[in-house]
Write a protein that binds this DNA or RNA. Structure first.
Lengths: 132, 132
DNA sequence: AGTGTAGTTTATAATGGTTCTAAATAAGTG
DNA sequence: CACTTATTTAGAACCATTATAAACTACACT
Protein backbone atom coordinates (compact mmCIF):
# COMPACT_ATOMS: atom_id res chain seq x y z
CA UNK A 1 0.00 0.00 0.00
CA UNK A 2 1.53 3.25 -1.15
CA UNK A 3 -0.01 5.37 1.57
CA UNK A 4 1.37 3.36 4.46
CA UNK A 5 4.91 4.62 3.92
CA UNK A 6 3.73 8.16 3.38
CA UNK A 7 1.98 8.06 6.73
CA UNK A 8 4.82 6.37 8.55
CA UNK A 9 7.37 8.87 7.28
CA UNK A 10 5.36 11.58 9.02
CA UNK A 11 5.08 9.61 12.22
CA UNK A 12 1.41 8.89 11.64
CA UNK A 13 0.21 5.37 12.26
CA UNK A 14 -1.35 3.96 9.12
CA UNK A 15 -4.84 3.38 10.42
CA UNK A 16 -7.78 2.21 8.34
CA UNK A 17 -9.33 5.67 8.51
CA UNK A 18 -6.22 7.54 7.45
CA UNK A 19 -5.63 5.23 4.51
CA UNK A 20 -9.21 5.67 3.36
CA UNK A 21 -8.88 9.43 3.60
CA UNK A 22 -5.63 9.24 1.63
CA UNK A 23 -7.39 7.28 -1.08
CA UNK A 24 -10.08 9.90 -1.42
CA UNK A 25 -7.65 12.82 -1.31
CA UNK A 26 -4.64 11.60 -3.24
CA UNK A 27 -5.78 8.78 -5.51
CA UNK A 28 -6.96 11.19 -8.20
CA UNK A 29 -5.49 12.50 -11.39
CA UNK A 30 -6.38 16.10 -10.66
CA UNK A 31 -5.89 18.01 -7.47
CA UNK A 32 -8.96 19.63 -5.94
CA UNK A 33 -10.30 21.99 -3.30
CA UNK A 34 -12.58 20.91 -0.50
CA UNK A 35 -14.14 21.79 2.82
CA UNK A 36 -14.23 19.31 5.69
CA UNK A 37 -17.91 18.68 5.10
CA UNK A 38 -17.44 18.04 1.40
CA UNK A 39 -14.67 15.60 2.24
CA UNK A 40 -16.83 13.76 4.73
CA UNK A 41 -19.57 13.42 2.08
CA UNK A 42 -17.05 12.18 -0.45
CA UNK A 43 -15.76 9.51 1.92
CA UNK A 44 -19.30 8.38 2.61
CA UNK A 45 -20.05 8.13 -1.11
CA UNK A 46 -16.82 6.59 -2.33
CA UNK A 47 -16.10 4.21 0.48
CA UNK A 48 -19.67 3.49 1.49
CA UNK A 49 -18.92 3.94 5.15
CA UNK A 50 -18.52 6.81 7.48
CA UNK A 51 -15.57 8.18 9.38
CA UNK A 52 -16.28 10.26 12.43
CA UNK A 53 -16.23 13.97 11.73
CA UNK A 54 -13.69 14.44 14.52
CA UNK A 55 -11.35 12.02 12.78
CA UNK A 56 -11.73 13.82 9.49
CA UNK A 57 -10.78 17.06 11.21
CA UNK A 58 -7.86 15.45 13.00
CA UNK A 59 -6.56 13.79 9.87
CA UNK A 60 -6.86 16.84 7.67
CA UNK A 61 -5.02 18.90 10.25
CA UNK A 62 -2.30 16.25 10.56
CA UNK A 63 -1.94 16.18 6.77
CA UNK A 64 -1.78 19.95 6.66
CA UNK A 65 0.94 20.02 9.30
CA UNK A 66 2.94 17.50 7.28
CA UNK A 67 2.58 19.42 4.06
CA UNK A 68 0.18 17.08 2.27
CA UNK A 69 -2.57 19.67 2.24
CA UNK A 70 -2.70 23.43 2.05
CA UNK A 71 -5.19 25.82 3.61
CA UNK A 72 -6.42 28.44 1.19
CA UNK A 73 -6.63 31.99 2.55
CA UNK A 74 -10.13 33.12 1.73
CA UNK A 75 -13.01 34.73 3.52
CA UNK A 76 -15.62 32.13 4.02
CA UNK A 77 -17.41 30.68 6.98
CA UNK A 78 -15.82 27.36 6.10
CA UNK A 79 -12.14 26.54 5.70
CA UNK A 80 -11.03 25.47 2.25
CA UNK A 81 -8.19 23.02 1.72
CA UNK A 82 -6.24 22.21 -1.42
CA UNK A 83 -4.66 18.91 -2.38
CA UNK A 84 -2.36 20.90 -4.66
CA UNK A 85 0.49 21.85 -2.35
CA UNK A 86 2.75 23.34 -5.01
CA UNK A 87 3.16 27.09 -5.26
CA UNK A 88 0.14 28.41 -7.05
CA UNK A 89 -2.61 30.96 -6.79
CA UNK A 90 -6.38 31.13 -7.08
CA UNK A 91 -9.25 32.76 -8.83
CA UNK A 92 -12.32 33.11 -6.67
CA UNK A 93 -15.56 33.41 -8.56
CA UNK A 94 -17.67 35.60 -6.30
CA UNK A 95 -20.97 34.67 -7.95
CA UNK A 96 -20.47 30.92 -8.05
CA UNK A 97 -18.45 30.94 -4.82
CA UNK A 98 -15.95 28.67 -6.49
CA UNK A 99 -12.18 28.46 -6.44
CA UNK A 100 -10.22 27.94 -9.64
CA UNK A 101 -6.52 27.10 -9.73
CA UNK A 102 -4.13 29.52 -11.33
CA UNK A 103 -0.98 27.72 -12.36
CA UNK A 104 2.19 29.38 -11.26
CA UNK A 105 2.92 30.13 -14.90
CA UNK A 106 -0.38 32.02 -15.16
CA UNK A 107 0.92 34.68 -12.81
CA UNK A 108 3.97 36.82 -13.51
CA UNK A 109 6.76 37.01 -10.95
CA UNK A 110 5.83 38.90 -7.81
CA UNK A 111 8.43 41.09 -6.19
CA UNK A 112 8.02 42.10 -2.57
CA UNK A 113 10.19 45.14 -2.03
CA UNK A 114 9.68 45.61 1.66
CA UNK A 115 11.46 43.69 4.41
CA UNK A 116 10.39 43.15 8.00
CA UNK A 117 13.24 42.87 10.46
CA UNK A 118 13.86 39.37 11.73
CA UNK A 119 11.15 37.86 9.58
CA UNK A 120 11.39 35.92 6.38
CA UNK A 121 8.82 35.23 3.74
CA UNK A 122 7.22 31.85 4.02
CA UNK A 123 4.76 32.13 1.16
CA UNK A 124 3.22 34.56 -1.28
CA UNK A 125 -0.37 33.86 -2.18
CA UNK A 126 -2.49 35.71 -4.68
CA UNK A 127 -6.27 35.71 -4.69
CA UNK A 128 -7.93 37.09 -7.83
CA UNK A 129 -11.60 37.83 -7.32
CA UNK A 130 -13.83 37.46 -10.36
CA UNK A 131 -17.15 39.10 -11.11
CA UNK A 132 -19.47 38.94 -14.14
CA UNK B 1 -20.84 66.78 11.12
CA UNK B 2 -18.74 65.34 8.34
CA UNK B 3 -20.09 61.81 8.66
CA UNK B 4 -23.73 62.72 8.24
CA UNK B 5 -23.32 63.40 4.54
CA UNK B 6 -21.20 60.34 4.02
CA UNK B 7 -23.95 58.22 5.52
CA UNK B 8 -26.76 59.95 3.68
CA UNK B 9 -25.03 59.56 0.32
CA UNK B 10 -25.15 55.80 0.86
CA UNK B 11 -28.78 55.85 1.88
CA UNK B 12 -27.94 55.18 5.51
CA UNK B 13 -29.75 57.20 8.13
CA UNK B 14 -27.21 59.07 10.25
CA UNK B 15 -28.01 57.54 13.60
CA UNK B 16 -26.14 58.18 16.81
CA UNK B 17 -24.62 54.69 16.66
CA UNK B 18 -23.44 54.95 13.08
CA UNK B 19 -21.84 58.32 13.68
CA UNK B 20 -20.01 57.01 16.73
CA UNK B 21 -18.76 54.03 14.75
CA UNK B 22 -17.60 56.39 11.99
CA UNK B 23 -15.68 58.42 14.53
CA UNK B 24 -13.85 55.37 15.78
CA UNK B 25 -13.18 53.99 12.32
CA UNK B 26 -12.43 57.05 10.23
CA UNK B 27 -11.37 59.83 12.57
CA UNK B 28 -7.77 58.60 12.66
CA UNK B 29 -4.61 59.55 10.90
CA UNK B 30 -3.66 56.01 10.07
CA UNK B 31 -5.83 53.28 8.69
CA UNK B 32 -6.04 50.06 10.64
CA UNK B 33 -7.21 46.46 10.72
CA UNK B 34 -9.79 45.14 13.13
CA UNK B 35 -12.16 42.36 14.04
CA UNK B 36 -15.72 43.01 15.11
CA UNK B 37 -14.84 42.28 18.70
CA UNK B 38 -11.87 44.60 18.69
CA UNK B 39 -14.08 47.32 17.25
CA UNK B 40 -16.71 46.80 19.91
CA UNK B 41 -14.03 47.13 22.61
CA UNK B 42 -12.66 50.25 21.00
CA UNK B 43 -16.08 51.87 20.95
CA UNK B 44 -16.58 51.02 24.59
CA UNK B 45 -13.21 52.54 25.51
CA UNK B 46 -13.26 55.64 23.33
CA UNK B 47 -16.90 56.60 23.64
CA UNK B 48 -17.49 55.26 27.12
CA UNK B 49 -20.73 53.61 26.12
CA UNK B 50 -21.73 50.45 24.40
CA UNK B 51 -23.36 49.74 21.10
CA UNK B 52 -25.11 46.44 20.70
CA UNK B 53 -22.98 43.80 19.03
CA UNK B 54 -25.73 43.25 16.45
CA UNK B 55 -25.56 46.92 15.51
CA UNK B 56 -21.79 46.76 15.15
CA UNK B 57 -22.17 43.81 12.79
CA UNK B 58 -24.96 45.53 10.83
CA UNK B 59 -23.01 48.75 10.52
CA UNK B 60 -19.73 47.16 9.51
CA UNK B 61 -21.53 45.13 6.85
CA UNK B 62 -23.33 48.22 5.60
CA UNK B 63 -20.02 50.10 5.44
CA UNK B 64 -18.41 47.21 3.62
CA UNK B 65 -21.21 47.12 1.05
CA UNK B 66 -20.75 50.84 0.45
CA UNK B 67 -17.00 50.58 0.04
CA UNK B 68 -15.96 52.26 3.29
CA UNK B 69 -14.41 49.06 4.61
CA UNK B 70 -12.69 46.07 3.06
CA UNK B 71 -12.71 42.46 4.20
CA UNK B 72 -9.23 40.92 4.23
CA UNK B 73 -8.97 37.41 2.81
CA UNK B 74 -7.22 35.42 5.48
CA UNK B 75 -7.70 32.15 7.29
CA UNK B 76 -8.79 32.94 10.75
CA UNK B 77 -11.76 32.08 12.90
CA UNK B 78 -12.54 35.78 12.95
CA UNK B 79 -13.15 38.11 10.05
CA UNK B 80 -10.67 40.95 9.63
CA UNK B 81 -11.65 44.30 8.19
CA UNK B 82 -9.48 47.12 6.91
CA UNK B 83 -10.22 50.84 6.97
CA UNK B 84 -7.74 51.18 4.13
CA UNK B 85 -9.90 50.58 1.07
CA UNK B 86 -7.27 51.46 -1.50
CA UNK B 87 -5.56 48.75 -3.51
CA UNK B 88 -2.92 47.25 -1.30
CA UNK B 89 -1.65 43.98 0.03
CA UNK B 90 -0.70 42.42 3.36
CA UNK B 91 1.98 40.70 5.30
CA UNK B 92 0.67 38.23 7.80
CA UNK B 93 3.01 37.50 10.68
CA UNK B 94 2.20 33.88 11.53
CA UNK B 95 3.81 34.02 14.97
CA UNK B 96 2.30 37.26 16.16
CA UNK B 97 -0.91 36.64 14.21
CA UNK B 98 -0.73 40.22 13.01
CA UNK B 99 -1.46 41.90 9.71
CA UNK B 100 0.88 44.53 8.30
CA UNK B 101 0.03 46.75 5.35
CA UNK B 102 2.08 46.48 2.22
CA UNK B 103 1.82 49.66 0.22
CA UNK B 104 0.97 49.16 -3.41
CA UNK B 105 4.44 50.44 -4.23
CA UNK B 106 5.96 47.68 -2.09
CA UNK B 107 4.73 45.07 -4.52
CA UNK B 108 5.76 44.91 -8.15
CA UNK B 109 3.10 44.77 -10.84
CA UNK B 110 1.20 41.51 -10.98
CA UNK B 111 0.23 40.12 -14.33
CA UNK B 112 -2.55 37.57 -14.55
CA UNK B 113 -2.12 35.76 -17.83
CA UNK B 114 -5.18 33.58 -17.75
CA UNK B 115 -8.73 34.66 -18.63
CA UNK B 116 -12.00 33.09 -17.57
CA UNK B 117 -14.78 33.40 -20.12
CA UNK B 118 -17.44 35.91 -19.18
CA UNK B 119 -15.71 36.94 -15.99
CA UNK B 120 -13.66 39.99 -15.23
CA UNK B 121 -11.15 40.63 -12.53
CA UNK B 122 -12.54 42.57 -9.61
CA UNK B 123 -9.47 42.58 -7.43
CA UNK B 124 -6.03 41.08 -7.00
CA UNK B 125 -4.95 40.55 -3.42
CA UNK B 126 -1.60 39.29 -2.22
CA UNK B 127 -1.00 37.75 1.17
CA UNK B 128 2.64 37.34 2.20
CA UNK B 129 3.06 35.04 5.15
CA UNK B 130 6.00 35.74 7.45
CA UNK B 131 7.88 33.41 9.74
CA UNK B 132 10.87 33.89 12.00
C1' DA C 1 1.26 -14.97 20.77
C1' DG C 2 0.49 -12.01 25.04
C1' DT C 3 1.09 -7.66 27.43
C1' DG C 4 1.71 -2.88 28.09
C1' DT C 5 1.92 1.69 26.39
C1' DA C 6 1.11 5.31 23.61
C1' DG C 7 -1.51 6.77 19.70
C1' DT C 8 -6.11 6.95 17.49
C1' DT C 9 -11.02 6.99 16.87
C1' DT C 10 -15.43 8.13 18.29
C1' DA C 11 -19.84 10.24 19.92
C1' DT C 12 -21.00 13.93 22.15
C1' DA C 13 -20.52 18.28 24.49
C1' DA C 14 -18.65 22.80 24.53
C1' DT C 15 -17.06 26.96 22.26
C1' DG C 16 -17.37 31.07 19.84
C1' DG C 17 -18.06 33.99 15.87
C1' DT C 18 -21.85 35.29 13.22
C1' DT C 19 -26.74 35.68 11.88
C1' DC C 20 -31.66 35.76 12.95
C1' DT C 21 -35.82 37.37 15.34
C1' DA C 22 -39.16 40.21 16.88
C1' DA C 23 -40.17 43.89 19.80
C1' DA C 24 -38.86 48.68 21.08
C1' DT C 25 -37.09 52.92 19.43
C1' DA C 26 -35.71 56.63 16.30
C1' DA C 27 -35.61 59.08 11.86
C1' DG C 28 -37.76 61.08 7.96
C1' DT C 29 -41.98 62.91 5.52
C1' DG C 30 -46.12 65.36 4.87
C1' DC D 1 -48.10 66.02 15.17
C1' DA D 2 -49.09 61.60 12.91
C1' DC D 3 -47.50 58.05 10.17
C1' DT D 4 -44.38 55.07 7.82
C1' DT D 5 -40.11 52.91 7.44
C1' DA D 6 -35.47 52.18 9.04
C1' DT D 7 -32.68 51.00 12.91
C1' DT D 8 -31.32 49.24 17.31
C1' DT D 9 -31.35 45.82 20.68
C1' DA D 10 -31.10 41.58 23.69
C1' DG D 11 -31.30 37.27 23.29
C1' DA D 12 -31.87 33.01 20.74
C1' DA D 13 -30.39 30.22 17.02
C1' DC D 14 -26.92 28.56 13.94
C1' DC D 15 -23.03 26.10 12.57
C1' DA D 16 -18.11 25.24 11.83
C1' DT D 17 -14.69 23.89 14.70
C1' DT D 18 -12.43 22.20 18.96
C1' DA D 19 -12.33 19.75 23.36
C1' DT D 20 -13.39 15.66 26.17
C1' DA D 21 -12.99 11.31 27.81
C1' DA D 22 -13.89 6.61 27.07
C1' DA D 23 -13.25 2.67 23.87
C1' DC D 24 -10.26 0.86 20.64
C1' DT D 25 -5.99 -0.19 17.89
C1' DA D 26 -1.12 -0.31 16.48
C1' DC D 27 3.16 -1.52 17.79
C1' DA D 28 7.28 -2.72 20.59
C1' DC D 29 8.93 -5.91 23.74
C1' DT D 30 9.35 -9.86 25.77
Amino acid sequence: MKYIDKLRISGLRPTKQRIQICEVLFNTEKTFHFTINELEQKIRNKKGNKISLATVYNTVHAFEKNGYLKRIPLNSNQTYFDTNVTNHHHFYDLKEEKLIDLENSDVGPISIKRKINGKKIKSVEVLVKLED
